[in-house]
Design a protein around this nucleic acid. Structure first.
Lengths: 196, 196
DNA sequence: GTCTATACCTCGATAGAC
DNA sequence: GTCTATCGAGGTATAGAC
């Protein structure tokens, strides 16, 4: 803690990212100025450039970090067993991971169009990895004969849209707990995919 | 057609709205300048203010128009009969209406946060009307005993998210026609809600 | 590492000529 | 109805003192 005054690299860095995430989720990247982010952190605008070369890199960093954390958490999640068991585990994992991360989800979906083409391609590749994890489960379930799907790829995207849509209405202090939301959505997902 | 040169009110007006819609859908409202919109239309920036008092009104107008058209089309759609028949008709209507309107859907969902509180409330009220149309169908189906849902309100929002998500991946020249997409999603929706 | 100050640019919106 | 010209504000990013 004995630290030279004015030197806060390891404190200010995360604060910059937190403030940027919150403000961009709320107002959109183009609508938020570097001055606003700096004010939220409690520094002057020029100081931000010790932590990011420019605004685009800051946005890209936020989105990449989100996707990296998602894929790392997915790799650690207990998803194994039959296709049905894995689909349930994936569904619950998706909800549990995304619901407490409203801002990250918002930014990762809405600000794709503000990325440079190179950065966009990188984020899309990460997203595709995540989608493929679900698609593999669905394919396995079809092979087992336990799932019946009209189109495996489209069903993958449909289920992800269904689940991610929760972040648009869920409120932490609303009438439903995360556990209750999990039950509701697992019920819908299971019925939608199961063979008749 | 014998029209005084320089007088194009009924031509330029729609062109302004079309250009604004396309550019805002692509880059976001805050990222698009009035000068860019004017350039797309082929006039100077100042001329835009003959068609909108300010940028906020232009955005609000785009979103309101979309919701009004949606509700008018819904009122005209052939949605009647049993709850199952109405759910199928609603599903197909939703897909048919939204798929050719990518830009409108994008703007209506992503730019809500850039509306003033008053304008936001108005658009939300329109959206709520649309959601309630589906919720009524689901409630009726439960009363008939033909649907079994874990939570009617949440299921309503879940189905709308599922269906609207199509606009994120559908391409007019892709491997699937709109009719095929309808079949795939109706299959998923029907199975998700039907009583066992 | 943060500050102040600033270069340089683009923004939304308006005024007045045509 | 559109143009040119412009105002005042606020944008990103940098320079140099501390």
């Amino acid at each position: 803690m004995a630290r030279k005054q004015g030197s806060h690299s390891d404190i200010t860095g995360p604060k910059v990212r937190d403030a940027a995430l919150r403000l961009i989720a709320r107002h959109g990247c183009a609508a938020v100025s570097m001055r606003q982010i700096a004010a939220e952190v409690g520094v002057q605008a020029g100081a931000l450039y010790n932590y990011t070369p420019d605004k685009q890199s800051l946005l890209f960093d936020l989105m990449c970090t989100h996707m990296d954390e998602l894929l790392a958490a997915l790799a650690d999640a207990p998803i194994y067993g039959t296709a049905m068991a894995r689909l349930e585990a994936f569904t619950r994992f998706h909800i549990r991971f995304h619901l407490p991360r409203r801002d990250q989800v918002f930014v990762s979906y809405m600000e794709l169009r503000n990325l440079t083409p190179e950065n966009f391609a990188k984020v899309e590749a990460l997203r595709r990895q995540y989608e493929d994890a679900l698609e593999t489960i669905l394919k396995d379930g079809e092979a087992e004969g336990v799932f019946a799907l009209p189109d495996t790829r489209v069903s993958t995207l449909a289920l992800i849209a269904l689940l991610t849509g929760i972040t648009n209405w869920y409120r932490a202090n609303g009438r439903l707990s995360i556990a209750e939301v999990e039950e509701i959505y697992w019920s819908l997902v299971r019925k939608a995919v199961v063979a008749a």
